[in-house]
C-alpha cells in the first residue's frame, strides 16, 4: 500500500497496516511521537487499533525530551 508519510510517498508491503505495524516496519529509534491521519490526531493508546488506508496522509512529529 502507498501512503503519504510527512508529505513523502512511502510504500509498505502489506494489505492491512495499523499505525503500530508501520512504526515496527520503519524501525524508528526515537521513543515518542504525535501522529495525525488525514488531519485527525490519533492518541498513542490507539496505535494498534487504528489502521492506515491506501492513500492516507500520515503526519508524524518526533518528540525529543528537552525544554
Amino acid at each position: 500500500m502507498k501512503i503519504m508519510l510527512n508529505k513523502r510517498e512511502e510504500e509498505f508491503d502489506a494489505d492491512i497496516l495499523s499505525i503500530q505495524d508501520m512504526l515496527n516496519l520503519k524501525n524508528y529509534s526515537f521513543r515518542l511521537r504525535v501522529i495525525k491521519i488525514n488531519g485527525v490526531l490519533i492518541p498513542s493508546g490507539k496505535y494498534s487499533s487504528t489502521y492506515i488506508n491506501e492513500g492516507d496522509e500520515v503526519q508524524m512529529i518526533y518528540l525529543m525530551s528537552g525544554g
Partner: peptide
C-alpha cells in the same frame, strides 16, 4: 517527551 505527548494529545 511523555509530557509533550500528553499535552499535545
Amino acid at each position: 517527551d511523555e509530557m509533550k505527548q500528553m499535552l499535545i494529545e
